[in-house]
């Protein structure tokens, strides 16, 4: 069982959240969409699995490196 941690790559705000803990996701699914540099940047899963923790809510401002979610596969 591998836990994949998904972190924010840059300072950004959370625009939309698409998943909740317990959701099944496939590789490449969009977890959340961040807003930064006037762009909407989808955050995707690298591997299929189940969303474990979700640490962000819409509107929240994230710093580089902040944990967004974990996906257990």
């Amino acid at each position: 069982m591998a836990v994949q941690e998904i972190h924010a790559e840059m300072v950004s705000s959370v625009w939309k959240v698409f998943v909740a803990p317990g959701a099944e996701v496939a590789a490449g699914d969009t977890l959340v969409i961040l807003e930064s540099m006037k762009m909407e940047i989808p955050v995707l899963t690298e591997h299929a699995g189940t969303v474990g923790e979700l640490h962000v809510v819409e509107g929240e401002v994230l710093q580089e490196g902040d944990l967004i979610a974990t996906v257990t596969s």
């Binding site: 840059m10 762009m39 989808p42």
Partner: peptide
């Protein structure tokens, strides 16, 4: 690649 860091 805009998917990563908005392509910056």
């Amino acid at each position: 690649n805009p998917l990563r860091l908005g392509g910056c």
